[in-house]
Each structure stands twice: as structure tokens, then as C-alpha cells.
Design a protein around this nucleic acid. Structure first.
Length: 343
DNA sequence: AAGCCGGGGAG
DNA sequence: CTCCCAGGCTT
């Protein structure tokens, strides 16, 4: 930030606000300032594209229209409404935060940035977004869009994979921050999503292109700089799909590692069940940090007495083909159940 | 400060 | 195939 300190860039923020008035996306959470809804939408769309999360957001708000309803719901049902979205700690934390708001704020959503920041699953970005959009807060909601737009505008090569990137780009954002911070934050999101896209940005339609340094240098694809590459490691999982007469056995995962608190098939079976093992199927599934190879053994328990004894232990949860969608399974397991239905 | 957590769509 | 998305938590 060498050559930017002496210049006044406030007009940039106002250009963005004017652009936003005419080009704001028509999204369901744009028609409200209810901090509950804005909070939910901010969590849903963390690391998630609008088109991917829109149905989840709408279904979530329909089932849990306010903090109290969410706080009083069972965790499994919150997870169910998060099914397929990924990053499941968000669902667990969103439920804990709702309880927090009931206990610590009498069910009234906190209005101060510092208080919002105390909620589980709420970091500096989300606290800034909610406080600015709903309570006239003045903090920039620095996210991936800010990184991209600002690094291009200033042709700034600061590495966004550096852990100091957030504070660095917060200072850059402060240079152009107008009075109406809430609209400004949303304007940056829309510009980054619709115009200043990661690849093939639409600079001809950008309200900032006359002053954008990356554009003047025709180096848009050089920004932002990101040095750290994510590498996925291989991981083998084994499951036994133990079933009889349209019912099958599942258990719930812990809240560590992948797929926190989602349901899964049995990772192992006792020797009495081994005679019923039929065939195995291997599913390859890619996560951001893992390449999964999931081997699933089909175990058709053809003996009524063995099945009855199995159920009697009460160690497992019984699910069935009729309503398996009432529990939250990892995507590859849900697909496996779906395919089993066709057989 | 670095590593980890999903799933999907774009190119 | 690679990249990255309205990030945050844990260690």
C-alpha cells in the first residue's frame, strides 16, 4: 500500500453505490433487514455460490423463521436442512448460536459488531456483514470478492493465502469505504460475482474500469495473487450396508473429521453377519482436501433371527428406504441409497 | 500461522 | 482436470 496513502479514493465507494442501485441482484434476503435472516444467509453462503445455496436458504427460513424456532429445534433437524450443502459445522454452530441468542440476549439479535462476533460460527466477515446491513455498522465485510476487486483495482500483489490478507485488505477497503457501508458491502459482493469474476471478468461493464490498474495494465488474470495450493490426500473408507426387508442400519458420526454429525452406514460388522455379505461396490468421491475411495459391502441379512438379535442390541439406528431422506447423509452415501432403491 | 472442513459449477 | 465460492474453527 505504498502509493495509495496520499490519494483520496472515496469516490470509488460512491461509484460502486450508484452502480449497485441499478444493478443489485434480486435475491430473497435483499428484501429484508431482519438480522436473523441476514445472519442465516451469510452463513449459508460462506464458501458457497448463490445458485447452489438458494434453495437451502429458502427451505431453512421456511422451517426456522426466527431465532426461537431454530433454538428450540432438534439438532438433527437443523442438520437435515443443511443436507448436501457441505461444511456441516456451519449447521451445528448456527444452532448453538441460536441458543446463545436466546440465553444471552433474550432472543433479541445483538446489534453491536463485537457482540455479533461472539456468536458461534460468526467471524469477522459475517459480523461485519450483519452489523452493516442491519444496524448501520461501519465495518467492511471483507471476503473473497474484496480480495479480488481490490487487488485488481490497485494491482496489488499481496498474497491472499497469507494469514494477514484479511487485515491487509481491510485497510485497502477503508480507503474507499463510503458512508452507506451496508450497501457498499453488498455492492462489492455483486460486482465480484457478476463483473469482476475470477475468470474472464466483464471489464467493459465495470463501473471502475477507468481507474482499475489491473485493467489499464491488462493484467486482470494476475490478480489476486494466491500462492498456497490445496492438495487432496487419498483416503479409503469401508462401510457395510446392513439391510433386511427395506430397512438398514446406520449410526451418527462424531463432530470431528469430515461430515460432522451426519449419518453413515456401519464401518464394521460382527462375525455373525459375515455369511450375509454379498458383493462390494467402490465409490470414488472428491472432497476439497480428500480423494475418497469408499468401499461399500452389501449385507443382506436373510435370517430373521439374526436380524432380530441385531436390532435387540439397540446399538444402531434403523433407517429405511421409505424415508431415508429424513436424515442427513453424506452425498455419496445418499446417492448409494438412492441407487439401491432402483434394484 | 497453518491446516482442515463439502459440494458444485465454470472454464 | 483445476480453481474457487457472501469463511471460520482448531491446533
Amino acid at each position: 500500500m505504498k502509493n495509495t496513502e496520499t490519494s483520496d479514493f472515496k469516490y470509488i465507494g460512491n461509484i460502486l453505490l450508484n452502480w449497485y442501485k441499478k444493478n443489485a441482484r434480486d435475491l430473497p434476503f435483499r428484501q429484508t433487514k431482519d438480522p436473523y435472516k441476514i445472519w442465516i444467509c451469510e452463513i449459508v453462503f460462506q464458501q458457497t455460490r448463490i445458485n447452489q445455496g438458494l434453495n437451502h436458504y429458502n427451505n431453512f427460513i421456511k422451517r426456522f423463521p426466527d431465532v426461537k424456532t431454530l433454538a428450540e429445534a432438534a439438532e438433527d433437524e437443523v442438520l437435515l436442512h443443511w443436507k448436501g450443502l457441505g461444511y456441516y459445522s456451519r449447521a451445528i454452530n448456527i444452532h448453538k448460536a441460536a441458543k446463545q441468542i436466546m440465553a444471552d440476549y433474550h432472543g433479541s439479535f445483538p446489534s453491536e459488531y463485537g457482540e455479533i462476533l461472539k456468536l458461534k460460527g460468526v467471524g469477522k466477515y459475517t459480523a461485519a456483514a450483519v452489523s452493516s446491513i442491519c444496524f448501520n455498522g461501519k465495518m467492511p465485510a471483507v471476503d473473497g470478492n474484496f480480495y479480488r476487486v481490490l487487488s485488481r483495482f490497485f494491482a496489488d500483489g499481496f498474497d491472499i493465502s497469507n494469514s494477514k490478507a484479511f487485515s491487509y485488505f481491510s485497510e485497502l477497503a477503508a480507503l474507499i469505504l463510503p458512508e452507506k457501508v451496508g450497501d457498499f458491502n453488498q455492492a462489492m459482493m455483486d460486482l465480484g460475482s457478476e463483473i469482476c469474476k475470477p475468470k474472464n471478468p466483464l471489464c467493459g461493464e465495470c463501473p471502475l474500469h477507468e481507474n482499475c490498474l489491473a485493467f489499464s495494465l491488462q493484467k486482470m488474470s494476475s490478480f489476486p495473487v494466491k500462492t498456497k495450493k490445496v492438495k487432496a490426500e487419498n483416503l479409503q473408507l469401508t462401510y457395510y450396508f446392513v439391510h433386511r426387508n427395506g430397512q438398514f442400519l446406520i449410526q451418527q458420526r462424531k463432530d470431528d473429521f469430515i461430515w460432522k454429525k451426519l449419518f453413515e452406514f456401519l464401518p464394521e460388522i460382527s462375525v455373525e453377519l459375515e455369511p450375509f455379505v454379498r458383493n462390494a461396490k467402490t465409490i470414488n468421491h472428491k472432497l476439497t482436501h480428500k480423494n475418497l475411495s469408499i468401499e461399500i459391502f452389501d449385507v443382506d441379512v436373510t435370517s430373521a433371527s439374526v436380524w432380530k438379535a441385531l436390532i435387540g442390541t439397540k446399538k444402531y439406528i434403523i433407517s429405511d428406504f421409505e424415508n431415508f431422506h429424513e436424515k442427513s447423509f453424506p452425498k455419496p452415501l445418499e446417492n448409494y441409497i438412492q441407487n439401491s432403491l432402483k434394484d
